[in-house]
Design a protein around this nucleic acid. Sequence first.
RNA 1: GGUGCCAUCGCCAAGUGGUAAGGCCGCAGCCUGCAAAGCUGCUAUCCCCAGUUCAAAUCUGGGUGGCACCUCCA
Length: 466
Amino acid sequence: MYIYDSVQKTKREFVPQERGKVSLYVCGPTVYDNAHLGHAKSALVFDLLFRVLRANDYEVTYARNITDIDDKIIQKAQKSGKEIKEITDFYTNAFHHEMNKLGVIRPTIEPKATESLEAMFKLILKLLKDKHAYKTSHGDIYFDTSSDSQYLQLSHRFQDEDDKKQRVEGSLEKKNSADFALWKSVNDNSISFDSPFGKGRPGWHLECSAMIEKHLAKPDKKFAVDIHGGGADLLFPHHENEAAQTRCATNHELSAYWMHNGFVNIDGEKMSKSLGNSFFLKDALKVYDGEVLRFYLLSTHYRSNFNFNEEDLLNSKKRLDKIYRLKKRLFGLSFENVKTSFSDSLLEALSDDLNISASLALIDEMISHANETLDTAGKHKQLKLETLSNLAYIEEVLGFGVKNSYEYFQFGVDKQTKEKIQMLIKQRDEAKKARDFAASDALRHEILTYGVNLMDTLQGTFWEKI
RNA sequence: GGUGCCAUCGCCAAGUGGUAAGGCCGCAGCCUGCAAAGCUGCUAUCCCCAGUUCAAAUCUGGGUGGCACCUCCA
């Protein structure tokens, strides 16, 4: 398996620290609002990585955190008068529900910040003891970036001297402008946690380092985890800061490989609430089948920036449709797993830094070949078994084609409409039998007004939502 | 201003030194009562200029254009 390491900026062979075992940590959502398409993209990319690692016979421990301590959450709580937990539980549940619809497998561990406070205290105490952190007169604790000679090497940056002075003069008793809060003390009645340093709240960056130490890190290894992932924007400052804390507080580096997924734009513009084009996943899921979104969001290489637009989504759906039509052609056949060269090729493509394009090309070729053979030699049993196995493999590794074909093609059509369509199809079949093509075409026209396409096959007439 | 990324057919998009994958759209044909679906065939020399090389979309230099990050952010 090969992975592009966005810190070393090269694609290199993936070798885990422990033979056959992989630890993977991905920065998850802050649960103060609904998940948007960018969250979906990130979750999907690492879901694919998770699946591909497992298909390569690795035993994977995959942790994706839930940030449930955050200023935005607190603001929301104060404004709405709700309890913090009420808010974070709501959005955490919504997130899980939506991920489920996207076919995202639950990570092995989903640590929460609120459950990792002890691990955070431990890190802070160690950093204070070793003079990598300092306390201000207000009781805040900062990480001293000048105490880490390797600071900024992860994100390949250097410090701007002028900028540095300006910002430090500005406020906060910070030693260096880049110093970041490990602990923010709270003196009033707002929400806080008790700690060895008094009441306060942890800094965001600390959370991930602490969870990794608590759940994944092994003391005798050079790196805390094998792979650390997240959105491209997290490389700096979030990952830089995480890496610095871990490096200074423990005897290991944070991660052996770093993976960053590209951003999702909408119609060429960055998603943002101020622009009003923020596309919440829950809204997209009302209009599109979760798997269509999964397929579309995964259809471009994970490192590229992704430009979301409806036209591309619909084109992409046509490609997924082909998988389901083939599946439909083989409906009812008993499954029997057969080894094929296709699965090897597919895994090879995916194992090359998740080369999805090469994988989809292989899938399309497999589908065409299967359809061609089924057209000419419909009773080709071996081919049918192989094709079923291939489709099963695609389901397992890519999560495409996991639904029932008929349900897939009827997404978003209510029961009443379905019955109506069935009735019209029945009438049309009768007209066809009577060779009254004028009547049959008129009925087809009527059915079309429901946004439905008809297909006459040897097995009968089927319909698909367009 | 600093740092970095990208530029391949009308659209989406692989390939990163050995002579351009795949999908959508389009055209022709097979199949079909007609369609749809499916199948077959056809469609690009890779932003521009210069260089390195037997060989470059792929490496180097210079342009042009787009984008991201610079301490809220997947």
